[in-house]
């Protein structure tokens, strides 16, 4: 089916999905910490727009609350808090060297293909727009994982973790018009607590090993 044949709202959702995936790739490639935080905030903003759009189109207005939570947490609170921590820990100018970055990008591309392959059985029984959105949200989750694996800086790992969370929210919003309200609230609460705990951990790691490079966390081994 042609893209133009879809209703306008679905076209917009698909466009937003593509943009969210795009920001995931940006996160993966970005090595400057402050820019990384900004990119993450943009991904949150895209998620917010997608949620609002779905809420209006589907007429499920409780999604607007979920959108508000996304706006407050993912666009403002978490980026603001991360930025503040980065300033306080004085690592604003840090540039992370990521080894074999082109290989990682190819890997991320492969993950997108894999997500489409995994989502194949779902695509069959679903409306057109959800076909793609589930695959894309899975890809966002997997790219977030890849980011956690490839990055050595604790801040970058946290952003990878939070972008996985974005992928999950996008899956919930686009495939099922959000989760039941109590679950949305619970998940948002968990994310909030996690964001605060990450901040605590930055200081603990910094004080414990003198740097935020998690490669230095290597004292616990299976065999010594």
């Amino acid at each position: 089916m042609q893209m133009a044949a879809l209703p306008l709202s679905e076209q917009m959702i698909l466009t937003l999905a593509a943009l969210i995936l795009f920001t995931s790739f940006l996160l993966l490639a970005q090595t400057r910490i402050v820019t990384l935080i900004h990119t993450f905030a943009w991904q949150g903003a895209l998620l917010f727009f997608a949620t609002v759009l779905v809420a209006i189109v589907s007429g499920r207005h409780h999604l607007l609350i979920s959108a508000g939570l996304t706006l407050a947490l993912k666009v403002f609170f978490i980026p603001w808090q991360l930025r503040r921590l980065v300033v306080r820990l004085d690592i604003r100018r840090d540039v992370e060297t990521v080894g074999s970055s082109s290989l990682i990008m190819i890997g991320a591309g492969a993950l997108v293909l894999f997500s489409y392959y995994v989502a194949l059985p779902i695509r069959e029984l679903s409306m057109l727009s959800t076909r793609n959105t589930i695959a894309i949200s899975l890809a966002v989750i997997l790219i977030g994982m890849l980011m956690i694996i490839t990055r050595r800086k604790a801040v970058a790992q946290v952003i990878g973790f939070m972008s996985m969370e974005n992928g999950l929210m996008f899956a919930a919003v686009s495939a099922t018009y959000g989760m039941p309200m109590v679950v949305e609230l619970g998940v948002a609460f968990d994310v909030l607590v996690a964001a605060i705990l990450f901040g605590v951990f930055f200081f603990q790691i910094r004080n414990g090993i003198g740097s935020l490079n998690v490669d230095h966390l290597n004292r616990l081994n299976e065999v010594d």
Binding site: A154, F201, Q204, I205, N207, G208, I209, V214, L217, N218, R219, L220
Partner: peptide
């Protein structure tokens, strides 16, 4: 708050 315990916590 030993380096080992922080590592364990982060992991």
């Amino acid at each position: 708050r030993t380096p080992e315990s922080i590592e364990a916590g982060w992991k």
